[in-house]
């Protein structure tokens, strides 16, 4: 009877090892829900909040009271007040889409320090609405 090929054994063991590591990682670390302001209710833990800046931002990301602004659903009207401390990207301004990590605390989304990422208009930017 022919011996089974070591190649198949190696592949089978490797796939099993990868799956084991993967399951271990996913069960330990998991991921971060990426949601918009309208979906914040019911999320008590850490989330990535995506939306666009509306109104006039107040304060300073480097000051103790932080930068305060409202974030709105990209395609919707639900908003949430945000307080943020840390580096503020140059692209930050009213109307800009951005992503922050943090959690909702008494109706205010408290963002993690330095977690703000504005959408970097890359070479595939959407056409302007004219």
């Amino acid at each position: 009877m022919a011996r089974p090929s070591p190649v198949r054994l190696v592949i089978a063991l490797s796939v099993a090892a990868v799956l084991a590591i993967f399951l271990l990682y996913v069960s330990v670390a998991g991921g971060t829900p990426s949601i918009q302001p309208s979906q914040l209710k019911g999320h008590s833990g850490n989330v990535a909040l995506v939306g666009k800046v509306v109104g006039t931002p107040q304060g300073d990301g480097h000051a103790a009271q932080g930068l305060r602004f409202d974030l709105q659903d990209v395609k919707g009207s639900a908003t949430v007040p945000v307080v943020y401390r840390g580096s503020v990207p140059d692209q930050f301004k009213t109307g800009r889409e951005l992503r922050l990590e943090g959690q909702l605390e008494r109706g205010v989304f408290v963002a993690k320090r330095d977690s703000m990422r504005t959408k970097c208009p890359s070479k595939y930017t959407a056409k302007k609405d004219t």
Partner: peptide, 23 residues
């Protein structure tokens, strides 16, 4: 993962740098 998690759980779950750095 964000697309698949949205299809299965109804919301996007993103895996960031820790996931990729781990692997």
């Amino acid at each position: 993962f964000p697309i698949l998690s949205e299809a299965v759980r109804g919301e996007q779950i993103t895996v960031g740098a820790p996931y990729y750095n781990f692997f």
